[in-house]
């Protein structure tokens, strides 16, 4: 199994007085097809870890190889390109554009990564079909339930065929029914070979993952 994520000795400290170490000497190895949850209370460094994993933030020390490519030291443009093409983001607040219909929201998924224009709409429809929303293609996100919105966001993340689906509190805004539906979708994706990293503070969510990692005070511990 090839490594998707390989963090070695990653540290991230925020400049304040006194300096706050958000991540300290973090090592993490994620293989293709893994379903990993990172669980921890707020303030534990979860978000910082997500930002580092998503190439949204640069660690101060250590090494981060994504699909065998060392990302520390890359320019902003290259990191942006890798982020767009290889990482699919799923956010707690969905981040859907309210004035665009469901299909258009999904089509944003590979707008910047050179996806073919000619069949983008078809691919968006296929991704929506995959998350079970083919009956909602023309809807505005505001007319969808929270669970449906999150599935639109997942379809968007899947559009570019990413190496990694990075989910930040994906069920944080959902009730238990919708949460269950999303977790089932994650199981389906996992079976289809998608690599999933889910960051959460919710144990019911983290228990569904095959591998669980706890984060506290910027340090990881696997159990």
């Amino acid at each position: 199994m090839s490594a998707i994520i390989e963090l070695t000795g990653v540290g991230r400290t925020f400049a304040s007085d006194p300096p706050v170490p958000a991540l300290a000497d973090v090592d993490l190895l994620v293989h293709a097809g893994d379903y990993l949850s990172i669980v921890g209370p707020s303030g534990s460094g979860k978000s910082t870890l997500l930002n580092v994993l998503g190439l949204l933030d640069l660690p101060d020390s250590g090494s981060y190889e994504l699909e065998g490519v060392e990302t520390i030291g890359l320019g902003d443009g290259e990191r942006t390109a890798i982020r767009g093409a290889r990482i699919g983001f799923v956010f707690q607040s969905f981040h859907l554009l309210p004035h665009r219909d469901v299909t258009e929201n999904v089509m944003l998924g590979d707008l910047y990564t050179g996806g073919r224009r000619s069949d983008r709409r078809d691919r968006a429809r296929a991704a929506l079909d995959r998350v079970g929303l083919s009956h909602r293609t023309g809807f505005r996100p505001t007319h969808l339930s929270g669970g449906e919105r999150q599935r639109v966001a997942i379809a968007r993340a899947l559009l570019g065929d990413p190496a990694l689906l990075l989910c930040d509190e994906p069920t944080g805004n959902l009730d238990s029914t919708n949460t269950a539906a999303i977790l089932e979708l994650f199981d389906d994706l996992r079976r289809a070979g998608t690599t999933l990293v889910v960051i959460t503070h919710d144990d019911t969510v983290s228990r569904r993952a095959a591998r669980r990692v706890r984060i506290a005070d910027g340090r990881l511990s696997e159990r």
């Binding site: 942006t80 982020r83 607040s93 981040h95 910047y112």
Partner: peptide, 16 residues
């Protein structure tokens, strides 16, 4: 702002 963040997450460069 959030839309800009999303677009950046989706691979949009500053110039885009």
């Amino acid at each position: 702002t959030a839309e800009i963040g999303l677009r950046r997450a989706l691979g949009a460069r500053r110039r885009h």
